[in-house]
Design a protein around this nucleic acid. Structure first.
Lengths: 224, 224
DNA sequence: CCATACATACCAACCAGTTTGTATGCCTCG
DNA sequence: CGAGGCATACAAACTGGTTGGTATGTATGG
């Protein structure tokens, strides 16, 4: 049947291209609105290749989530390389990394896990479970950073690190959602700044919110 | 063509049933995964009725968003009826109302605006704009409550009411997203409690987070 | 030579939307 | 007051395109 020449076979590469295409489409239109045909078209392969590598659409969803989480956690793990000297240094680095996701990108910052969680949490138990796991991983990481800070410096008011981490996770996801809907990435940056000050305030007890009126939103910004 | 008897005609009722069905389906599976046929089936009408009342699927999406926002804002407006005597009384009432959405419901608390924002913010400019407007309405309401509190009592540290309102909006949306994915509504309740304490702390300067182990659901608030 | 890695064609179900027909209730007008 | 007209409110069948998934082939490389 194949009239055209088959290109050189790069199964690993083909798989990666499919996963990357799926991630892109999910970020743009969500999972259910992303057709298998569209994924194939963007990846430059045919449906035969798709169903050779993934036995269903759900399965590439799982793969997309996994690759996304792996990439993300690798970025967050950089926070561990910050010095431990000021107890909150690594927490601050963590906030810097999240802020960097916004400032280093022209397109709105979004998350495959957040996208698929929103769509599928109630309708697809399997994918819901996968999303739940990755949200938990993120929270565990934040929780550990907070606990290390607590161990290094007793906070002014005791707090539960896990609860604070879930607070940050929800704020992070919600900020991305709101910012892209409002088409204003500064919402994320400001919310992260406030959250950072909030955490700082738990330890230092000085200020809990940046006192000034925050930076101008309107004009396009360029930061790296 | 119609072999069956046509039921009594109640256009207003039919329209409401379609909008309600659309809201339900959007909350369960999202907008793009909700077919017109499914909406009609759940509303108990045929496609002829659907396209008589709405000229496209997008249009019922707009109607669903509008009805949802109207219902929600009516519930939030109850916060205005709280006494103004302690400056933060109405802000506390506002938190009580949100907490009540969680405690008064068996199913996970979700939001049509958040759902459709997530899916359509990048792919559908029209619906994105509608969502953006309703997110703005919510934030304006919260901002006004905070500004009234600021006027009644000078906060310990000055803060921008609009920024704080966007912070709360993102936290609220993100909390619903995370909670349903984790299948743990307490995440929302705890996050709201922490946010409440955060706002309190801006005024009083005492505690910024409830000490350890978080509280159980607050006093039950009436519905509607 | 044979498992792997694809390509192509195809399928039934479903998609949003249209067409066509008819039942209903109100509004004249005699 | 009753007959008839007529816009509204639906029902049902249908259309062209798309959906996830399959069947069947063949090219490739070890």
């Amino acid at each position: 049947m194949p009239r055209t020449l088959q290109k050189q076979r790069r199964p690993e590469e083909t798989r990666k291209r499919l996963v990357a295409a799926a991630q892109e489409l999910v970020l743009e239109r969500g999972f259910s609105a992303s057709g298998v045909d569209q994924i194939c078209e963007r990846a430059g392969v045919t449906k035969g290749a798709f169903f050779h590598h993934f036995k269903s659409k759900d399965e590439i969803g799982i793969a997309a989530l996994g690759a996304w989480a792996e990439f993300g956690m690798a970025a967050y793990a950089e926070a561990r390389k910050a010095p431990a000297k000021p107890p909150l240094a690594r927490v601050h680095r963590f906030f810097d990394i999240m802020t960097g996701f916004v400032t280093d990108s022209t397109s709105p910052v979004t998350c495959v896990v957040g996208m698929m969680s929103q769509e599928l949490a109630q309708a697809n138990p399997v994918l819901r479970g996968v999303c739940s796991g990755y949200l938990g991983d993120w929270t565990d990481f934040a929780k550990e950073l907070l606990e290390e800070a607590k161990a290094a410096q007793k906070p002014r008011v005791d707090f539960d690190a896990a609860e604070a981490a879930w607070f940050l996770n929800a704020l992070w996801q919600g900020s991305m959602l709101v910012a892209k809907t409002r088409q204003d990435p500064h919402i994320v940056i400001r919310n992260l700044a406030h959250a950072r000050a909030f955490i700082d305030g738990l330890f230092s007890g000085t200020a809990t919110l940046p006192p000034r009126k925050s930076p101008q939103p309107r004009t396009k910004r360029r930061t790296k």
